[in-house]
Design a protein around this nucleic acid. Structure first.
Length: 448
RNA sequence: CGGAGCGUAGCGCAGCCCGGUAGCGCACUAGUCUGGGGGACUAGGGGUCGCGAGUUCGAAUCUCGCCGCUCCGACCA
């Protein structure tokens, strides 16, 4: 992509409404613009990141055996009356009436809808054991939206719903999602830590929040340091195998958010030198809730013996749009964003220090073509800006690699390759620099 | 919804207290010099001062109402 043809309104100054760093940088980097309180337009650069994160979530859901579908944003109030949540949900739910005065709502979540779909289509135990998910915009009319897309009212979420015959089956399904979440966040370059969460009326041990650590996280978390070094399940993880060891390893050590934190237990279980307190952001939540919706909504199948059994359900959410901000919170410096390759809007920023100069233009064109042909995503700054402005803008938007081409280096047949994260700069012969970047990008695409 | 504040050019702000026909920096346009970390100079363009009433000869400025946004709290993926 040539920057001169792209739409990238980078801001030199920080808009005053942005409080936290990810919000500031998303505005500065031209990723989003607010359209109303807690509602954002995703500009091209932000949209690319959103899509990449979405795709990673999708791939890991698919790998874990979940099946994608797509449900609408608008729902009928009818099914919410069946579950009893229409009244219970309160003002967070955006209620709408259509021209015929029918009661509608903009979905804050989809348990009711998916349960209706599943129950209306399925009658046999042979159809149980399925997990369905979609990635769709949700709306929750938060009293006070804040922190940009981190706490917006409209947000993109992956929500999966499982239907199993027995609580034991449901537990295995839960474990699959648990493992899939570990992989999902790790692929984005994030350290995620599952923490026991409130299981509500069901009780038991089957609800976890996935917290990623970031200096500017919204809540305080306490955990055993060993959790930081645990291995994430590999690509070839066998989701049909026994996942208990993985779950045990990750749920054994102490980990709690401030609201669940028990200082005595923490001190008793965790040696002082292994105690860690940090800031965290919730990016996922998985939950087993049994028959909470299947019972009132009549989602049942016939077993082998002909008896009707109410399905055991769980739901599994990932805050996709929130993750964009979460990655930034976890990965930035004073100059701007530092994207991990896996979610970077472009993998390489190509900077032409002297647009209009025949030699640099030609060199850049050739590099651009070769990088693109090698399958690398390149944003080529071919504009007429000054060098300093180009460097600063490129640092703000945080592409992981910068290839700098100017007349001085070119005289010696050299280009400069800068690693955004470390700031390390290497001056290399053109061909060597090209190959170096291609290999480095490919090596980092898949982190786990 | 309780408390606090803000709304003046694309962004950041001054002007408001003490009414007199709107300004600064950055950005933008044209030109010249420049050219490896947001360069300099010259000349420009851009504003229903959030909206509506009121007071006044005269309102960005004073009064009232409304709208929007931000921050703190309760709530939350």
């Amino acid at each position: 992509m040539h920057l001169s043809r792209y739409f990238l309104p980078v801001l030199r100054e920080t808009p005053s409404e942005a409080e936290i760093i990810s919000h500031q940088l998303m505005l500065r980097a031209g990723m989003v613009r607010q359209s109303a309180a807690g509602i954002y337009s995703w500009l091209p650069l932000g949209h690319r990141v959103l899509r990449k994160i979405e795709q990673i979530v999708r791939e890991e859901q698919d790998r874990a055996g979940a099946v994608e579908l797509l449900m609408p944003t608008l729902q009928s109030a009818k099914i919410w009356r069946e579950s009893g949540r229409y009244e219970a949900y309160g003002k967070e739910m955006l209620r709408i009436t259509d021209r015929h005065d029918r009661e509608m709502l903009y979905g804050p979540t989809n348990e009711e809808l998916i349960t209706e779909i599943f129950r209306d289509s399925v009658k046999s135990y042979k159809d149980a054991g399925k997990t369905l998910y979609h990635i769709q915009w949700k709306f929750r009319d938060e009293i006070r939206p804040r922190f940009g897309v981190m706490r917006g009212r409209e947000f993109l979420m992956k929500d999966a719903y499982s239907f199993d015959l027995t609580p034991d089956d449901a537990r295995r399904t839960y474990y699959r999602m648990f493992a899939a979440y570990l992989r999902t966040f790790a692929r984005m370059g994030l350290k995620s830590i599952p923490m026991a969460a409130d299981t509500g009326p069901i009780g038991g041990d089957l609800s976890h929040e996935f917290i990623i650590l970031a200096k500017t996280g919204e809540s305080e978390v306490f955990c055993h340091k060993d959790l930081l070094d645990l291995d994430v399940p590999p690509v070839d993880i066998d989701y049909d195998g026994n996942l208990t060891p993985i779950i045990d390893a990750w749920t054994g050590p102490y980990a709690a958010t401030d609201e669940k934190h028990e200082p005595e237990q923490f001190n008793a279980e965790v040696p002082t030198d292994k105690q860690m307190s940090a800031r965290g952001i919730e990016v996922g939540h998985i939950f087993f809730f049994g028959t909470k919706y299947s019972e009132p909504m009549g989602a049942r199948v016939q077993g082998k013996d002909g008896q009707w059994q109410t399905l055991q359900m769980g739901s599994y959410g990932v805050g996709v749009s929130r993750l964009v901000a979460a990655v930034i919170e976890a990965s930035h410096d004073d100059d701007g964003i530092i994207w991990p390759v896996a979610v970077a809007p472009f993998e390489v920023g190509l900077i032409n220090l002297r647009s209009g100069d025949t030699a640099t233009d030609a060199a850049c064109d050739e590099l651009y073509t070769k990088l693109t042909n090698a399958g690398i995503e390149v944003l080529y700054d071919d504009t007429d800006e000054r060098a300093g402005a180009k460097f600063s803008a490129m640092d703000v938007i945080g592409l992981p690699f910068q290839v700098v081409v100017g007349p001085k280096g070119l005289k010696n047949g050299e280009i400069e390759v800068k690693r955004r994260g470390s700031g390390a700069r290497d001056t290399l012969a053109i061909e060597a620099g090209l190959n170096h970047v291609i290999e480095a990008v490919k090596a980092e695409r898949m982190l786990v």
